[in-house]
């Protein structure tokens, strides 16, 4: 299946000379949730602003459902909904009118039934006649989502959906995104929280200094890049690592009552089996074994630091 959004060698230099995007190529599949993960200033917002038509690309192409964002901007943009990072709203308007306006702006005839359904889905229905200025920050964010979805787009961009939001609201937003996924809409979100990418996304694109460092399924990313460690708890503590195990990457932890073995899941052989065999040969008794995968955060930090080195 052809990707729903195709970004090809996209570059953007601002008038100041700052090069925000240095040749970004990215395919986004229909129905997936992809997280653009990167530190502040990495180019995440510039990337989605360019796809959505807010900034002009310096070079490169973007197509949405096969429509070029410059040549066929009407078809391309009518497929897209954008939820901006800032809570940019007409404060004095009511929720209902604000959402109606968005639908009209995208060329769709007024459809109050659809708008009300959307508000209900986002838990905004009882606020539909409230002025936006009277809503809490979390509710305003939902209004922005309702506005972005009012013209029934196939692709939704969420720029830092949980920036500056407390833990409770963040979890709440994750739930909203999860509900949206069920409607089949493709979601591209930017975040600098690894936890967030991990919780919401199917795939993760790591972006840094205007370039995509890698794009991978969340699971593969962790499996491929992640180091795993096995903690082997022993029935009797050891003073030092036995000579027969010295060639393994093991160390004693917990005052000698456990062995920590770090291995790379990318390797053809993890060495787990032979380590366990050698443990037995050495006459060591195990009481328990636990394994732990490194988090995306560790992967991410490793990636960025590795680049700097």
């Amino acid at each position: 299946m052809a990707p729903i959004v195709k970004v090809n060698d996209l570059r953007k230099s601002y008038d100041s000379g700052f090069e925000a995007l240095k040749g970004v190529t990215l395919d986004i599949e229909e129905g997936e949730i992809i997280a653009l993960l990167g530190p502040n200033g990495a180019g995440k917002t510039t990337l989605i602003s360019t796809i959505c038509g807010i900034t002009r690309p310096t070079s490169g192409t973007v197509t949405v459902s096969g429509h070029d964002i410059i040549k066929d901007y009407r078809q391309a943009r009518s497929q897209i909904g954008l939820v901006p990072q800032e809570l940019s709203l007409e404060q004095f308007e009511t929720v209902m009118n604000a959402v109606r306006f968005s639908r009209g702006l995208f060329g769709k005839p007024n459809d109050d039934a659809l708008v009300e359904k959307l508000l209900r889905q986002l838990g905004l229905h009882d606020k539909k006649d409230s002025k936006i200025m009277a809503l809490s920050g979390g509710m305003k964010r939902r209004v922005l989502i309702a506005k972005a979805l009012a013209h029934e787009p196939r692709v939704l961009f969420l720029d830092e959906p949980t920036a500056g939001v407390d833990v409770e609201l963040r979890k709440d937003m994750w739930r909203v995104v999860d509900e949206l996924r069920k409607t089949g809409v493709t979601i591209i979100l930017t975040t600098h929280y690894i936890e967030e990418a991990e919780a919401m996304a199917d795939r993760i694109a790591v972006i840094e200094k205007g370039q995509i460092r890698l794009v991978q399924g969340k699971v593969e990313l962790m499996a491929h890049l992640g180091k795993k460690e096995a903690i082997i708890h022993l029935t009797a503590p050891l003073a030092e690592v036995p000579a027969s195990l010295a060639h393994y990457n093991v160390e004693l932890v917990n005052n000698g009552s456990a062995l920590r073995y770090v291995y790379d899941v990318r390797a053809e052989r993890t060495g787990i089996t032979s380590l366990l065999n050698d443990l037995q040969t050495a006459g060591l008794q195990m009481s328990d074994i636990e394994t732990r995968q490194s988090s995306l955060e560790e992967i991410f930090v490793g990636l960025i630091e590795g680049d700097a080195a």
């Binding site: 959505c52 038509g53 807010i54 901007y73 009407r74 078809q75 391309a76 943009r77 009518s78 897209i80 954008l82 901006p84 800032e86 940019s88 709203l89 007409e90 404060q91 968005s102 702006l105 995208f106 060329g107 506005k147």
Partner: peptide, 15 residues
């Protein structure tokens, strides 16, 4: 809209 930032919507719309 420029001041509040809500102009993003106009710029991203097929208008």
């Amino acid at each position: 809209p420029k001041f509040t930032g809500s102009i993003y919507e106009l710029l991203s719309a097929p208008v």
